[in-house]
Design a protein around this nucleic acid. Structure first.
Lengths: 337, 337
DNA sequence: TTGAAAGCGCTAACAA
DNA sequence: TTGTTAGCGCTTTCAA
């Protein structure tokens, strides 16, 4: 499986190997016919340039690290899809790694990425504290955070306006006639959750509603935990006509618990999610939700990172994208029971 | 952002740089105290070995190409998750690319992988023809195909026993009392679909049932196409009490069409899927299905590939894993209407 | 327009 | 036990 090198081509074409290099790189300082001759020989010999060797001298691997918490999470996989597309369109490839939402692994992965000489990394952080624990690496490797709002942190990130998204959601529910809206599944320690809860509170205030919370006491977000939480909720008396779930994943758990408890959605309770993961659009689920524009998130992240790399920009950028409401069928107009 | 090299460390430690290399690689031909001294200097200087340079001399990048049709497909993302885990556990990383189920892109990606000097590639092929179009590359790069049964093709692959899975499904439905089972969504030109249909036919034969088909006339499989196909189906008279969908994705489309057409599942029709993608276990969906063991598929693929690489095995292996039935709630005992 | 040669950061064979 | 040196395959000065 030994590959043909530039030297083999040079020998076959009867030129020096720097000439071959020039022919390949489209350098102007070479005559048209030698170039053509060389290119023909390359084809014949099935020559493929060794990117690794090139990377060594160019000091650029054209490789981007993509660190996600879990590629199996639909939000991440959609993001990864678009990151790959966008990166490839710009001549880069992706080394994919899962951090399993573990900050220690995150650090190890950064170490690994540095060793692999990637040109930069796109990181879906485990949480807001990632920016802190990774600080030593951030000066060594251009990095863009995705999906987590790092507030005033002097690091580049792209995320959405979570507060505004939540505000939008409450407005929508209010317009449907709901006056008692429960905010469900807020997780302490997550900036994202904090900002969403803030938006919820602000909207309640502006619309004259009384905020009600049912917080996530687990420190994880998953359908399973959302389900367990919702079971607890449904064991209590109801003082709300709509549930605004902090994430679609939570909402899915609510859906499951509701089904088991004989609660109909949206007939008995309206349910609104946040994220618009792919699952939410599935038949029978049809969750109305606040959309995070994943494609946009990905392409802004890649663009930013490549700008940073190619222009050796110091400094940082914060991109806050605007979420939108996706109306499906888990919310209905309020009707007095 | 210039990185510390082995030479910098050597200078700082007052030794030659090959000594540093030895200290780092845990070579025995070095005294314990110089090693320790060097290691300490490495720590102090924040030295990270340059994997690219190492790869050049070792002729091994410890990188695996993972080419999927679409990472956003839940089957693929689950596979990718396990491939990453398994590969990382064995000291490898993954370069991820989407082929968009396009054989031309597949070829380009192989070219790219060769250039990047990956040690091998794991490929979820676009279709059975991929093995043909990629033939020129397969001799240049150790490759394992995943998920597609290449029959007697002399290439390594790991897939499941599709015929047996389908057989299992028919048996199950038969046991529930169903005698008229429609096979839905079979796509021509896919070996996987062919094998499943074969298993369906064999089971029908053995159990004395009459096979009924409603084939996929689109050449793609997606919820949307499954839905359109099911709409056509439901416009016709019914002569079946159960639908066996060729894939979960198809089944999801059936679910959606059924909902719109006022057909209850499983009360009116039982629905059985194939693949057990993550979506199928979601609340309200709860699709009974035949499981492809994705984790197993991934780890067998990685193991095979690494064996192939490390032992420079010529030859090839075919691994056919056994599917199992996952019982959820989309199938009910037959009741005469 | 072309060739010779240095060097990217590392490993390993050979010398000392 | 340590140092010297020759590459790995490429790009890029500098000379011719």
């Amino acid at each position: 499986m030994k590959n043909v090198t530039i030297k083999d081509v040079a020998k076959a074409a009867g030129v020096s190997y720097s000439t071959v290099s020039r022919a390949l790189s489209g350098s102007p300082e070479i005559s048209a016919d030698t170039r053509e001759r060389i290119l023909k020989v390359c084809k014949e010999m099935n020559y493929t340039a060794n990117t690794v060797a090139r990377a060594m001298v160019m000091k650029s691997t054209k490789l981007l690290g993509l660190i996600v918490t879990d590629i199996n999470n639909p939000f991440m996989s959609e993001l990864a899809y678009h990151v790959d597309r966008q990166a490839r369109a710009r001549g880069y490839n992706i080394i994919l790694c899962n951090s399993s939402r573990d900050t220690e692994q995150e650090s190890e992965l950064f170490e690994l990425m540095i060793g692999r000489q990637v040109d930069g990394v796109i990181l879906c952080p485990s949480g807001p504290e990632s920016a802190e624990t990774l600080r030593p690496y951030l000066t060594r490797l251009p990095t863009v955070f995705v999906g987590e709002n790092l507030r005033e942190m002097p690091e580049s990130y792209v995320s959405i306006d979570n507060a505004r998204g939540a505000y939008l959601g409450v407005e929508y529910l209010h317009k449907l006639g709901h006056r008692d809206i429960l905010y469900f599944g807020r997780r302490r320690g997550s900036t994202t959750h904090q900002l969403r809860a803030d938006g919820y509170a602000a909207a309640c205030h502006d619309l004259g509603l009384t905020p009600q919370y049912f917080n996530n006491t687990f420190s994880f977000t998953s359908i399973k935990y959302g389900y367990q939480l919702a079971k607890q909720l449904f064991a209590q008396e109801r003082h709300y006509s709509a549930i605004f779930a902090a994430t679609d994943t939570n909402a899915l758990g609510v859906l499951q618990a509701a089904e088991e408890s004989g609660i109909r959605i949206p007939e008995d309770i309206s349910l609104l999610g946040f994220d618009n993961i792919r699952d939410s659009g599935l038949p029978r689920i049809n969750l109305t939700t606040i959309e995070q524009p994943k494609k946009m998130l990905a392409s802004v992240a890649v663009d930013n990172l490549l700008d940073k790399i190619q222009n050796e920009l110091a400094g940082y950028t914060h991109h806050i994208l605007t979420p939108t409401l996706i109306e499906r069928s888990s919310c209905a107009p309020f009707t007095a029971k």
